[in-house]
């Protein structure tokens, strides 16, 4: 075995510069995924057939095709077909966010529907309107099921964000690869990227566990 970290040490600041890009992409996709996913979840539990159909079709398509395909359609396919120019940063956020929304909507829907049916019946019997029932009775109980699964989803989004490297977004992954090809020290530079992802994901999981304990208490 022959590892030479001294060769990549000068490039570490360059790789770490990508943290900003990775964190920006991850946090904005999480935000997009959460907002859109919440809206889709409301569609799924609504009584309006068109909305339920739209939301389940959306989920089915985004969960049934590879993320990297969705990313490439947005980055290469859309400009070709519609003539709109989209740069790598928004394309990455759009792909990850739209994809995550499908999973988030399922997590929220399942969390809401896992609340005992007796709870909504009791609220209905008291004459509580549907909007208040969701807000005051169902949602506070659903959040216990939803939050841990959401943290999980966002942890995996953090890892998957590394695929934006294929459209040339200069995130940690991309920069590690560039350093590797510059110095021929692939193993060393990729390991630095690996450590970064591992620490980031561990921090997220740790926060998730804390939150879970707090919710159970």
């Amino acid at each position: 075995m022959n590892l030479d970290f001294s060769g990549v040490i000068p490039s570490i600041p360059f790789i770490l510069e990508g943290i900003k890009v990775t964190l920006a992409i991850v946090s904005m996709s999480i935000l997009l995924g959460f907002v859109l996913g919440s809206i889709l979840a409301v569609f799924k539990i609504s009584d309006i057939k068109v909305l339920t159909f739209f939301a389940s079709a959306y989920t089915s398509i985004f969960r049934g095709t590879p993320l990297i395909l969705q990313l490439m359609i947005i980055y290469y396919g859309l400009p070709q077909t519609f003539g709109i120019d989209i740069s790598e940063f928004p394309a990455a956020i759009l792909a990850l966010g739209l994809n995550s929304a499908a999973y988030v909507s399922e997590i929220i829907r399942a969390g809401i529907q896992a609340v005992d049916k007796g709870q909504s019946e009791a609220a209905i019997a008291l004459g509580v309107p549907k909007r208040l029932m969701l807000l005051d009775i169902i949602f506070p109980q659903a959040i216990r099921n939803i939050l841990p699964a959401l943290i999980n989803e966002f942890t995996s989004l953090t890892k998957e964000s590394a695929i934006v490297t294929v459209i040339g977004a200069s995130d940690v992954m991309r920069r590690a690869y560039m350093v590797g090809s510059d110095t021929y020290l692939y193993m060393e530079s990729l390991m630095i990227a690996g450590v970064f992802y591992y620490v980031l994901v561990s921090l997220l999981s740790f926060a998730g566990k804390k939150l879970e304990v707090k919710l159970q208490g």
Partner: peptide, 20 residues
């Protein structure tokens, strides 16, 4: 329906109190 529900009380077998 909404009007009637606010003037008809119901007690369930499994109580269905709001746990939070």
């Amino acid at each position: 329906l909404q009007d009637i529900r606010s003037s008809v009380g119901m007690v369930f077998q499994h109580f269905n109190l709001f746990p939070h």
